[in-house]
Design a binder for these strands. Sequence first.
DNA 1: TTACTCCTTGAAGTGCACTTCAAGTCAATA
DNA 2: TATTGACTTGAAGTGCACTTCAAGGAGTAA
Lengths: 124, 124
Amino acid sequence: MTIAEVSELYNVSSATLRYYERIGLIPPVTRKENGIRDFQQEDLNWVEFAIKMRDAGISIEILIEYVTLFKMGKDTIPTRKALLIEQRESLAKKMEILQNTIDRLDQKIEGYETRVLKYEERLK
Amino acid sequence: MTIAEVSELYNVSSATLRYYERIGLIPPVTRKENGIRDFQQEDLNWVEFAIKMRDAGISIEILIEYVTLFKMGKDTIPTRKALLIEQRESLAKKMEILQNTIDRLDQKIEGYETRVLKYEERLK
DNA sequence: TTACTCCTTGAAGTGCACTTCAAGTCAATA
DNA sequence: TATTGACTTGAAGTGCACTTCAAGGAGTAA
């Protein structure tokens, strides 16, 4: 799969994909003899993982750490697991904040509900 | 209340509070005769709102728009309400993404669960 | 009265995560 | 054969949201 196809598939720019590879946020992508990237399923899995995690707000620094551990082999399995658990917890906290904010917005919107009615009343 | 006290109270730097006021993310703060900020309850409400919304990831641009509408008076009430509803929706979408990512992480962690066991077995 | 601390503003600097640009290679098509 | 279009790399540029710096003012303690 070419970089353009992957770009289309995951709705991310080619430049970003190259950037991710360059900084080690995904492992080196498979190349054809001429040096052109030819994404295999394994590469796609990494791309998808990277994009999903970034979308959830996990920092590039953390993700590079994860990929670096992966490259170091099996000895890092417990560390990698710990890293994922830590990130899971941080996302759960984010969810909580988000839920609280939504509740707060709902209250504020509810407050506007009556005020809009009054406002429209005034217009008559 | 001084800026240092507000800074402490909401765990945000004085510089950020000044910055928020300067860019119009909160309305102008009440001052003493000598020009020093003396936050009143009303000011605090704005500060709290701004910080909570920022924490939830709502952009500065949007929040400035809201404050600007507020300053323009009652005619903007329906617009303000619409803006809040829009943001509420966008937060709900974020929650969904977050939940999906957490689910995905849980699966990945579960996968590591067995691999860690194997790894520790190997060490014996 | 000098020194200290906290406040003020305006301007410049920083960190993160891309994004754009410049220069070049390669394969396919007019 | 020339040119078009997609690819390559390295470097520089961008946007957002602060953060730090520089210069100065006001109030209090020694």
